[in-house]
Design a protein around this nucleic acid. Structure first.
Length: 201
DNA sequence: GGGAAGATGTTCT
DNA sequence: GAACATCTTCCCT
């Protein structure tokens, strides 16, 4: 995989911290996926935290099932699930094994491999709508249920850190999560202020 | 540009 | 049977 110029691989500890902190700190960094011999790259601009305690919206809140079991793995793997019979959503598992907490990647700004992303999403005319939503970005990057459980440091889906972003942190807006009913009052959505690639206002 | 409807697999009640 | 961490299309203003 071709990692973004100047980027660095995160330490394992990066994903073992508090989920809201990971959701916030991953903003601005790179999501890379190896697809048909090419590396598709995007910059993460919007996330949501799903906590292991006091969070009824979290899939893990009602215990382990076949569907959500990768959420209970050690932080640093991908939790991919199928929703509404149509879409996949990509999460980054956080915390130590057994907790069941993760960060949902809601939107990315396409950086590299735009041609391939457009092939994955026929009918989309502009670049803004390629990956500005959880279902859109998995389609653009070719992420499916087969990627569930992928190790983010060795698999075809990876996170790389941009040193510029670590030095110069983006201004982050905290808001309520989108598209849920239970637990919707919690301020667990994070996005880069003013970024045009946000899924919803 | 905005609201409503439909798509449709898996899990939970 | 209902709900579900969504998106697109169609029709209206």
């Amino acid at each position: 995989m071709r990692k973004p110029r100047g980027s660095i691989k995160p330490q394992r500890n990066f994903f073992l911290r508090d989920t809201t902190l990971v959701a916030r700190e991953i903003l601005g960094h790179y999501l890379c996926v190896e697809s048909s011999g090419k590396t598709l790259t995007g910059r993460i601009v919007e996330t949501e935290a799903y906590m292991f305690r006091d969070d009824p919206a979290c899939h893990a809140s009602r215990g382990m099932t076949d569907r959500n079991c990768t959420m209970f793995e050690r932080g640093g793997v991908a939790y991919v699930y199928f929703i509404y019979g149509v879409h996949y959503c990509l999460n980054v598992v956080c915390g130590p094994a057994g907790e069941g907490t993760a960060v949902l990647i809601r939107s990315v700004k396409p950086i590299d491999g735009l041609d391939e992303m457009h092939r994955n999403r026929p009918g989309i005319k502009d670049d803004v709508n390629l990956a500005n939503g959880p279902g859109k970005l998995t389609q653009a990057f070719g992420i499916t249920g087969e990627d569930n459980g992928t190790d983010l440091s060795t698999g075809r889906i990876r996170i790389f850190l941009d040193p510029d972003v670590m030095r110069n942190k983006p201004e982050v807006v905290v808001a309520k999560r989108v598209g849920i009913v239970k637990g919707s009052e919690k301020p667990f959505r994070f996005y880069i202020k003013g970024n045009p690639y946000i899924s919803r206002k």
